[in-house]
Design a protein around this nucleic acid. Structure first.
Length: 449
RNA sequence: GUGACCGUAGCUCAGUUGGCAGAGCAUCUCGCUGUGGCCGAGAGGGUCAAGGGUUCAAGCCCCUUCGGUCACCCCA
């Protein structure tokens, strides 16, 4: 069977196409991405978080250590490759590991604690594509590192919910909440679980039989009917929490209530990894549950130490941007955006074109979003374009107008026109579109040391 | 990684038992040489996802691969 290198990479025209599971974010979708980024940056900046970007790829070892070799993410979902010197590198499959590596490497222990960081970046997993799951996906996340207090966990859940609220999707989700205690108390609980399942192994699904040895807590969120029934009568982790974790969890719930955050206590919500401690939470769809979870997080007091740093507590949240966009679309939410033009300039004749060029610069400098089609020279065609671009006003300049030092401003909606002298154009246009609608965004004044 | 369904123009889709590759929308041109939307006429645009097989003949039947959608596993 022939199997050329080109197979599957080309469209019929011989044009390259994207590999499986990745896609372009086209202008219409970027309206959502831009809006989400704005909300995230605004809310986190308000709360004193600062932005961090870790590299797209790290040494594979980082993820192996942070996430765990036994997890699906590490064992089968990573984009791993070798550089020219044979070192194993991996495109980041999640954000926390890199941020914690950076915290240690850049000696952020020396900063006032806690250190509050956020990110919004592409991540990569070699997965079979599915709804809300792509091989390159944007993830937003934030972490509070260096202090351990239930109030910080409450803050994180509060901020995650606040961001969802700003995006119009908070009401679609419930906060599922649990505590998985310290590694020590968890060890005790896992022994109890294994005892409980000891004589019931035959009723478990194949997967759970192996989980029983490697990670018994995962039996609790298995979806198989028999496993679920057993999980419901299995001992609850809340009964085996150490005193400190129990108190921590009670405090967290108090703080959440104070902040007006509704939550669902879910004793089946677990994490497999050793470094997770105490708080775990996820945002679940109200009707579809975990099937349509939008994000989740928890406390990871063991992670920094695991990566070779001093013992340092941490707590964080991460959410999938594609999933957020999908939910916003499902709710028929339209985001405000500034990709609209104010004025289209139609010109006829070389002198008019020259005038049009300088006028276009003047208008743009004043914050008027201005387009023209300088390659076309039929007024009819240009007006048609102005219409298609949705310009509310068209400025028409012909040879006659240039000679008389005026232009025609046409209101595209009602079709009325008026003649305006050159030196009044910018003022007249600003009045027409409204000062508050001008695109006068500035990146801020530069200063020098 | 496992399984199900799907792939025809930029988009949405027809295409009969195997017999000339189609429509609507979109694009471009013209009617209308300096005035858009409406209307009318016309044009461009396809290796029918790719490769192979069966056949006088394949968009249609068979095999493989690629891609899409969805579910599982798992996760964001």
């Amino acid at each position: 069977m022939p199997n050329t290198d080109d197979e599957g990479t080309m469209t019929p025209g011989g044009v390259l196409q994207t590999p499986k599971g990745v896609h372009d974010i086209l202008p219409n979708d970027h309206e959502y991405y831009t809006y989400i980024k704005k909300v995230v940056r605004h809310r986190l900046r308000q709360a004193g978080f600062r932005r961090i970007s870790t590299p797209m790829f790290e040494f594979t070892q980082l993820f192996q250590r942070a996430i765990g070799n036994d997890t699906d993410v590490v064992s089968k979902e990573m984009y791993t490759f070798q550089d020219k010197k044979g070192r194993s590198l991996t495109l980041k499959p999640e954000g926390t590991a890199g941020v914690m590596r950076s915290y240690i490497q850049n000696n952020m222990q020396a900063l006032p604690q806690p250190v509050q960081l956020y990110y919004i970046e592409p991540h990569f997993r070699y997965d079979r594509p599915q709804k809300g799951r792509y091989r390159q996906f944007w993830q937003l996340g934030f972490e509070i590192v260096g202090e351990s207090d239930p109030a910080l966990d409450a803050q994180i859940i509060y901020l995650a919910n606040l961001i969802n609220k700003d995006l119009g999707i908070a009401d679609l989700f419930t906060v599922q909440l649990n505590s998985i205690g310290t590694p020590e108390s968890r060890k005790e609980y896992m022994r109890v679980l294994q005892d409980f399942y000891f004589d019931k192994e035959r009723s478990l699904c194949e997967l759970c039989k192996t989980r029983l040895k490697t990670n018994p807590m995962r039996l609790l969120d298995c979806k198989e009917e028999n496993c679920r029934i057993l999980a419901q009568i299995a001992p609850k982790i809340s009964e085996y929490l150490d005193a400190e974790s129990k108190e921590f969890h009670e405090d967290l719930k108090e703080y959440l209530t104070e902040l007006g955050i509704k939550f669902v206590e879910n004793p089946y919500l677990v994490r497999g990894l050793d470094y997770y401690t105490k708080t775990v939470f996820e945002f679940w769809d109200k009707t579809e549950g975990a099937q349509n979870a939008i994000g989740g997080g928890g406390r990871y007091d063991g992670l920094v130490e695991l990566l070779g740093g001093k013992p340092t507590p941490g707590s964080g949240y991460a959410a999938g941007v594609e999933r957020i966009v999908a939910n916003m679309k499902r709710e028929k939410i339209r985001v405000p955006h500034k990709d609209v033009i104010h004025v289209f300039i139609a010109q006829l004749g070389k002198e008019a074109k020259k005038k049009g060029l300088s006028l276009m610069s003047d208008l743009r400098d004043a914050g008027v979003k201005t387009m023209a089609s300088l390659g076309k020279d039929s007024v009819r065609t240009q007006l048609g374009l102005a219409d298609k671009f949705g310009a509310p006003y068209t400025i028409i300049i012909g040879l006659t107008e240039v000679r008389e030092g005026v232009v025609i401003i046409r209101d595209m909606k009602v079709g009325t026109q008026k003649t305006v002298p050159f030196d009044e154009i910018v003022d007249v246009v600003i009045k027409l579109i409204g000062k508050q609608n001008l695109d006068t965004y500035s990146a801020g004044e530069l200063t020098y040391e």
